[in-house]
């Protein structure tokens, strides 16, 4: 793939900048509104302070079928605390005002559809947001979002999975801007002890179709795992472990884990591979 046609987008440029430093990028997730709306903002600021390259802000949803128990519990607490879609957008705005880091919203599809796809895209762009990660929207069903995002140059991060055929990977990456989200395991979000042996082949199959950066998520929880994935992926995506760190240790806990993950993605790839 030639560099000219790669739709790097906002997040892609940040990931590419990390590559230019000879390392993988770190993408960190926290849901808006957890444990409170203000507390959520503080937690996400701690991600920035700890050295994250790209931020995902989760939109708490009533039926999160891709999430394991850690993120389910956190988003239930956020919803019980009254977080609304507009609070998620306000959180995005506070973070983009705080730091020059691309901020994506990770959301199940129905809240966007209910808000109005064009209106959501406009308000997200207005808040300085970089784009969306859509775990239950496939490009086949995404025409309205794709059009809205293209109009505003927002990143469209769709997912690829170990179960995706090569044809589906090609279809998906052709519709992505920013980066491609490769799910490392067949399963839901949540920290895992064992590194997945499905991730590296998936990244290779994905890279065969696109020049976009490929981020790997699901199950990464510490610097060693981050280093292992950094050996073959452009970005390491961490979610549930950071949510747990925020619950256990507050913003200081998030910052400490982020620093250790940021160290992990900066290790020499050969050292990580030899581990």
């Amino acid at each position: 793939m030639s560099e000219q046609v790669v739709a790097l987008g906002n997040a892609g440029r940040a990931i590419r900048a990390a590559r230019d430093e000879g390392r993988a990028a770190l993408v960190g997730y926290l849901p808006a509104g957890y444990p409170t709306i203000d507390g959520g903002v503080d937690g996400i600021k701690a991600l920035v302070d700890g050295g994250v390259d790209v931020i995902e802000i989760g939109l708490p949803y009533s039926d999160p079928v891709m999430d394991g128990v850690t993120i389910q519990r956190a988003t239930e607490i956020a919803r019980a605390g009254g977080v609304r879609t507009r609070d998620v957008l306000a959180t995005v705005e506070k973070i983009t005002a705080y730091a020059d880091v691309p901020v994506l919203v990770m959301t199940y599809w129905n809240p966007v559809e209910r808000y109005g796809v064009d209106r959501f895209a406009t308000d997200l762009a207005g808040a300085g947001g970089a784009g969306l990660i859509t775990p239950d929207l496939i490009p086949d069903e995404g025409a309205e979002w794709i059009a809205a995002a293209d109009k505003l140059d927002l990143d469209k991060v769709f997912l690829v999975s170990p179960s995706s055929t090569d044809e589906r990977i090609a279809l998906t990456t052709a519709n992505c801007r920013g980066f491609v989200y490769a799910t490392a395991v067949m399963g839901v979000t949540g920290a895992r002890e064992q590194a997945s042996d499905l991730a590296a082949p998936l990244v290779a199959r994905t890279k065969a179709t696109t020049g976009l950066p490929v981020g790997v998520g699901l199950g990464v929880s510490n610097g060693d795992q981050a280093a292992g994935i950094a050996a073959f992926a452009d970005a390491v995506i961490v979610g549930a472990a950071l949510v747990k760190a925020l619950g256990d240790g507050g913003p200081a806990g998030v910052r400490a884990l982020t620093e250790s993950l940021a160290e992990g993605v900066r290790r020499e790839p050969t050292a990580a591979a030899a581990r």
């Binding site: 079928v65 891709m66 599809w109 129905n110 775990p135 239950d136 929207l137 496939i138 086949d140 069903e141 769709f158 997912l159 690829v160 999975s161 170990p162 179960s163 995706s164 055929t165 589906r168 998906t172 799910t183 067949m186």
Partner: peptide, 14 residues
């Protein structure tokens, strides 16, 4: 109708 499902399930649904 359609399929608003995680990509992981699209192959199996096919």
């Amino acid at each position: 109708g359609g399929r608003f499902m995680p990509e992981a399930l699209i192959g199996p649904l096919d």
